[in-house]
């Protein structure tokens, strides 16, 4: 029975699995589940699944579960897993791909703060051409509801004169805005 259920799951998720493989250039079937990736992963202790489990779930066709996993949001891209994997799976890039597809497909975001942070960061880059720290803090705090986030360290930053309250606007910000525009067009085009 188990085997039958597994085959059904694989069949149902076939096109999504090939989309994941095509975009990530990672063939999950190469993994032989040694667990090296999980052992060296700095965030497994707070995530729902380990990188090894994410790969196993993909092998089994459990795409819904993977798209909803917190692991794909918590991965910091340190590259420990990829550096040590005896089968050479680029897991950080797999996680990047899963995160992008999960959002595109409308799955609930397992780690909202990570998503809000990324989005706020990129908003400042899109409008100014560079990271605008004070703007990022304001955007992130209001959108995440963590109004005091960063406030423990903000006075130190100000005292040392490290963070400017004003953005640095690059001359080529139209070019940068155009990169974001093309990205949105491509996302829409799919």
């Amino acid at each position: 029975m188990e085997q039958v259920a597994m085959n059904t799951a694989l069949k149902a998720s076939e096109s999504t699995l090939s989309e994941i493989e095509h975009k990530s250039h990672v063939d999950v079937n190469r993994c032989f589940q040694c667990g090296t990736c999980a052992a060296g992963c700095p965030v497994t202790y707070i995530s729902d699944y380990s990188p090894r489990q994410i790969v196993k779930m993909l092998q089994a066709g459990m795409v819904d579960e993977v798209f909803k996993a917190s692991m794909i949001w918590l991965c910091v891209g340190c590259g420990n897993c990829y550096s040590r994997c005896p089968r050479n799976l680029n897991i950080p890039h797999l996680h990047d791909t899963l995160r992008v597809l999960s959002k595109e497909k409308g799955y609930p975001v397992a780690e909202k703060n990570v998503d809000v942070f990324n989005d706020s960061f990129l908003k400042t880059v899109q409008y100014t051409g560079r990271l605008y720290e004070a703007g990022l803090t304001m955007l992130y705090n209001t959108r995440s509801g963590n109004f005091m986030s960063g406030m423990d360290v903000a006075p130190g930053m100000m005292k040392l004169g490290k963070i400017s309250p004003f953005p640095h606007l690059i001359k080529g910000r139209k070019e940068v805005a155009n990169i974001f525009k093309k990205m949105r067009e491509m996302k829409g085009a799919k």
């Binding site: 990047d96 990570v114 942070f117 990129l122 880059v125 051409g129 080529g172 093309k182």
Partner: peptide, 20 residues
């Protein structure tokens, strides 16, 4: 007139954006 590299937020959000 360099621009931001996008850091992790870019590669976590899109496959094309960080490259561009």
């Amino acid at each position: 007139d360099w621009n931001c590299c996008g850091a992790s937020p870019a590669h976590q959000s899109d496959l094309f954006l960080p490259i561009a």
